[in-house]
């Protein structure tokens, strides 16, 4: 992630070293440059979050825009002592939950089979393949992630949320609890169950052929 949005020369250089909360306070004051900066800073992370939660790479563009629009619309609700990461994750998670309720989720294999011009992939797995240094490394990475994705899809949603928030988004138990509206102890329990599901699913892959 580069520190400054390209083409936005008006952003002060010291913004890169400032915490998200400072930028959010600028957003609260109506500064759309700060909003643009947060979008630049958080798009990669939220994109991965949506993909892991929904399994649909095509849904994430729409959800990304909706997340930041909701951030803007509810900017006054961001408390002075609030932390940005759990707050934006809660927005994103609510959107993903609403989306899951309103339509059937797309099958995960779309992400694997989607293709584009070399170096221009838009799916998670495609980007990983693009980043690999050799075709073998790319195939290996893709294989591993395809299995992980499939294993994640087999984890019940309640536990998968905990895994995505804590292991993939690196939130603390407390922050994940804030996103999910449960105590940290509950997050710990759900995370343990989610990891156990994954362990079993990955062990099954290990003993069987790659589909």
């Amino acid at each position: 992630m580069s520190p400054l949005p390209p083409g936005n020369e008006t952003v002060p250089l010291d913004w890169a070293s400032q915490p998200d909360e400072d930028h959010m306070r600028r957003v609260q004051a109506g500064d759309t440059r700060a909003l643009e900066y947060l979008i630049h800073r958080w798009t990669p992370r939220l994109s991965a979050f949506f993909y892991r939660l929904t399994g649909d790479p095509h849904a994430s563009d729409d959800l990304l825009q909706e997340s930041f629009l909701r951030l803007w619309a509810s900017r006054d609700a961001f408390r002075a002592d609030a932390r940005f990461s759990p707050w934006i994750h809660a927005i994103a998670r609510n959107l993903a939950t609403d989306r899951a309720r309103s339509r059937d989720r797309k099958p995960l294999h779309r992400a694997v089979t989607s293709s584009g011009a070399p170096g221009q992939s838009t799916t998670l797995l495609g980007r990983i393949a693009d980043s690999a240094t050799t075709p073998f490394a790319a195939a290996s990475k893709l294989e591993m992630l395809a299995r992980l994705d499939e294993a994640l899809r087999s984890v019940p949603e309640t536990f998968r949320e905990a895994v995505v928030l804590c292991d993939l988004q690196r939130l603390s138990y407390e922050d994940a609890g804030e996103v999910l509206g449960v105590p940290a102890k509950t997050v710990s329990s759900r995370l343990a169950r989610g990891r156990e599901h994954l362990r079993q699913a990955l062990a099954a892959f290990r003993s069987g052929p790659i589909s």
């Binding site: 992630m1 580069s2 949005p5 390209p6 083409g7 759309t32 909003l35 643009e36 979008i39 630049h40 798009t43 990669p44 992370r45 994109s47 991965a48 563009d61 990304l64 825009q65 930041f68 629009l69 803007w72 838009t122 998670l124 980007r127 990983i128 980043s131 591993m144 992630l145 992980l148 895994v163 292991d167 993939l168 988004q169 690196r170 990891r195 994954l198 362990r199 990955l202």
Partner: peptide, 30 residues
Amino acid sequence: DVRTLLRGVDDLDEPVSRAAAVGKGVLARI
């Protein structure tokens, strides 16, 4: 091992153009 695997997959570089496109779309809708 599972935890290590999970924590090793989110180190992704999102195309900068994607963030720019998202930002442009959001600001236009605002």
